[in-house]
Amino acid sequence: MELDCRGLSCPEPVVLTKRAVKDNPASIDVLVDHVAGLENVSRFLRAMKYEVSVTEGKGEWRISAKK
């Protein structure tokens, strides 16, 4: 599952992520384009017991989370 949060201001990326992990998916990718979003979403996913890895693109990040 992929969630495109590029262009959304705080805290929308993390609110959408929260909604997306409600059904407890085994993995989820979240795209963000600002550092505050990157940190918020990563922190939230870690708190939800996901293993989080980040790949950096040009001014945007892909947050990959797996259970």
């Binding site: 705080c10 939230f44 708190a47």
Partner: peptide
Amino acid sequence: VGGFRDLFLLKD
């Protein structure tokens, strides 16, 4: 704002 907001929305 983020402090209270994250507490309400995310319990963070």
